[in-house]
């Protein structure tokens, strides 16, 4: 079980959190014309790197804040966590 540092609450066990996917995904702006490819990439395509991965986590059993985590997908090492508004 991972130990994740919520930027608001501090270190907590993984079972307080839920995983929220790739943090680098940017939703196309509302009302803006998007090509099929652009939209397809946004909805379906994700990188699946072995190694560093910036991702979203949600502190569901805590402060209910979404935040960013830089994690090694192979070793589970967590390098850094940050608020959504901060650079990771």
């Amino acid at each position: 079980m991972l130990e994740i540092k919520c930027p608001y609450c501090g270190k907590r066990s993984q079972n307080e959190f839920s995983y929220g996917g790739d943090a680098s995904v940017k939703r196309p702006q509302l009302g803006k014309e998007t090509s099929d490819k652009e939209w397809n990439d946004f909805v379906y395509f994700r990188n699946n790197p072995r190694g560093k991965h910036s991702e979203l986590w949600h502190h569901v059993a805590g402060c209910r804040q979404w935040f960013k985590v830089l994690r090694n997908t192979a070793t589970h090492e967590i390098f850094k966590t940050s608020k959504i508004s901060e650079e990771l």
Binding site: S18, G20, L56, H58, V60, Q65, W66, I84, S85
Partner: peptide, 13 residues
């Protein structure tokens, strides 16, 4: 609820 929080915190802060 998690869906709403996601859009408010991550997509449209």
């Amino acid at each position: 609820l998690a869906h709403l929080e996601y859009y408010l915190q991550v997509v449209w802060p």
